[in-house]
Each structure stands twice: as structure tokens, then as C-alpha cells.
């Protein structure tokens, strides 16, 4: 008995130690899908021999970690789900300028001096095909009476892209659409997955502004769900990759960005149903060129973030 406890302790200690960070490796924080980063890391290690340590969480949690670690940061490469992060971090002077040779085929609007997109997601209507409702084609269709009490909206406070969609649409008609949605019993339901789950089971019929790649993934697994990109336009969320200036492994970090933008890397991105950043990589889903994008002033929208969120919460707040 005592021996087995000793064995357990030794095992525990060694496991814990092995989980530590060896210093020649790079550390990537990502708000992207775990499966994608796992494959990217695996491919990168095979190609370069550099090990990748991954921390995957939502954008908010990743930011919280970077903030808490501010005094002694460990992250080398950051992949955010919100372009905002790239703008903000650049302003703070935390980013290393880098132009990857593989970024040539990335459209100009998906790269800056200090950041480049890994891939792009778009927002659409996630609709349960067995819900007994008519397939919606437009955002406004969800205010129809057949969608009464059947619409979830991801919380714009918790999701960057959801916020941009909200701000862009609200800017067009001064929140009328959202007031109508509220009238029709739509509710704000947590982050993206939390909003989608009830639609899968049929508790709701549609998500207003669902992140497309998660929905495409569910569809591929056989869920009776589909994504509709309204003709009137939607927003896209490019997912910026950044190299932090405190990184002690900048050469390896740059190599990682190169790999991510390589044919192999971008194919992996496409396989997770994200739009690849490079325009020359094919994907089994609608691409940016196929989508109509809402036009709005991103900077102005971000500047009014607090007010917009307050208005949303005023509209959808508890009765």
C-alpha cells in the first residue's frame, strides 16, 4: 500500500514537472479551435523540431492571462479571435513587426505591419433545419412571428465578432432590428457555443449571428443545422496572429507564423471550416468573396463599445 502511494507520488511529481516549459520551445496562446492549434503545432514541430506549448481558451480568458502575467509574460505568439486585439496591442507597442514571406497571398486588409490573419470566420444565421420554421434568408426574418421565442443571440459582451455585427446592424437602423428581435422573444444567451447548443436540441430555431465555422463543424458531424449568410451583409472576424515583443524566441515565433501561412498550415485552417487567410487556398465553404460585408467604421464602432453594449443590455435586460 505504502509502495503504491510512493509510486503515485513519484508519478505525479514527474508528470507535473514534465508539464513545465522547456525554454527553447515557443509558447502559443490561442483563442482558436484546439484541434486546429494541435495540428498546427504537430506539423510545425515535425518540420522544424521546435516544440510548441499551447494555451487555448476564449479570447477573454487568453487576455486575462496575458494581463495577469504582465509582469513576467511567457507568451511568444498570440492568436486572437478578434482583430481588435491586434490594433490594441500594436497601440501599446507590444508587437514585433514581421512580414512573413508566405503572407504575400494574404489580402492587404487581413494584414498589418505587426499582425496577419490566420484565418477568417464570418457570422451568419445558424438555423435548425428540423425546427419546422421556414429557412430564413435575412436577419430581419428572425423577427417574424414563426421565430417567436426561438432565437438566441450570442452575448456581444462576450464575443468580439458578435459585438461588431451588433454595432454594424444597429448603426443602420438605430437598434430597431434588435428592438424587434426583443419583441419577438429573442434572448441573449452567453457565448457562441452556449447560444448554439439549444438550437441543436431544438429549444431554439436559430442563432442570430452564429460563428460560422463551429456551425459548419456541427453540420459536418451530422447535426441538422445550416448556416445562412444574409444578402444584406454580415461581418467577418479575421483572427490575427501576433508576435509579442517580449518573446525570447522571436526567430522560432516567426518560423511558426511562416508555417501557419504555408500551404500545409492554411490547409489545416481550411479543414476546420475557417476561411483561410491566403486567397489561393481552397476551402469547402463560402469564402470572403462569396459574402457581402456590412460597411461600417470599425474604429468608430470600437470607440462606442461601452455605450453600444449598454444599449443592448438595456433592450434585452430583464423585464
Amino acid at each position: 500500500m505504502l509502495k503504491s502511494i510512493k509510486g503515485l507520488v513519484t508519478g505525479a511529481v514527474s508528470t507535473l514537472l514534465l508539464a513545465g516549459v522547456a525554454h527553447a520551445d515557443i509558447t502559443v496562446y490561442t483563442a482558436g479551435p484546439q484541434s486546429l492549434i494541435d495540428k498546427l503545432a504537430e506539423g510545425f514541430t515535425t518540420e522544424t523540431g521546435v516544440k510548441v506549448n499551447v494555451f487555448q481558451a476564449t479570447t477573454g480568458k487568453v487576455m486575462a492571462r496575458i494581463e495577469a502575467e504582465a509582469a513576467n509574460p511567457v507568451v511568444d505568439v498570440l492568436i486572437s479571435a478578434s482583430w481588435d486585439t491586434a490594433t490594441d496591442f500594436a497601440k501599446r507597442g507590444w508587437l514585433v513587426p514581421y512580414a512573413s514571406p508566405n503572407a504575400e497571398k494574404v489580402p492587404a486588409f487581413l494584414k498589418t505591419e505587426t499582425a496577419v490573419a490566420q484565418g477568417v470566420s464570418a457570422l451568419g444565421i445558424a438555423w435548425n433545419t428540423k425546427s419546422g420554421t421556414t429557412k430564413p434568408a435575412e436577419w430581419a426574418d428572425l423577427t417574424k412571428s414563426e421565430f417567436k421565442d426561438l432565437v438566441n443571440i450570442p452575448d456581444p459582451a462576450q464575443s468580439g465578432s458578435s459585438f461588431e455585427l451588433t454595432a454594424a446592424l444597429a448603426g443602420q437602423d438605430d437598434f430597431k432590428l434588435f428592438k424587434d428581435l426583443k419583441e419577438n422573444g429573442a434572448v441573449i444567451a452567453g457565448a457562441n457555443a452556449e447560444a448554439l447548443n439549444p438550437v441543436l436540441q431544438g429549444a431554439k430555431a436559430a442563432v442570430f449571428g452564429a460563428v460560422d465555422y463551429i456551425t459548419f463543424g456541427s453540420k459536418a458531424k451530422g447535426e441538422s443545422i445550416d448556416v445562412i449568410f444574409p444578402e444584406s451583409g454580415t461581418v467577418i472576424a479575421p483572427r490575427p496572429v501576433m508576435i509579442l515583443n517580449w518573446s525570447k524566441n522571436q526567430d522560432e515565433a516567426k518560423k511558426f507564423v511562416d508555417y501557419m501561412l504555408s500551404d500545409a498550415g492554411q490547409t489545416l485552417v481550411a479543414k476546420t471550416f475557417l476561411m483561410p487567410a491566403r486567397s489561393d487556398i481552397p476551402a469547402d465553404r463560402p469564402l470572403i468573396a462569396d459574402l457581402k460585408l456590412l460597411s461600417y467604421d470599425a474604429a468608430a464602432v470600437q470607440g462606442k463599445r461601452k455605450e453600444t453594449l449598454q444599449q443592448v443590455s438595456d433592450i434585452f435586460g430583464a423585464d
Binding site: 513545465g20 457562441n192 463551429i214
Partner: peptide
Amino acid sequence: VVAPVGMQTIATFIWRQFEQG
């Protein structure tokens, strides 16, 4: 919040699966 990079626990695994559908 504190899980070291590259280390999953049961709960973070489950949470991640939920988040990714």
C-alpha cells in the same frame, strides 16, 4: 485560468468541447 500551457485537465477538456460544439 491557471492551467499551464499545453496541459489539459478533465474540466478544461469538457469546457473546451462545449465551447467548440
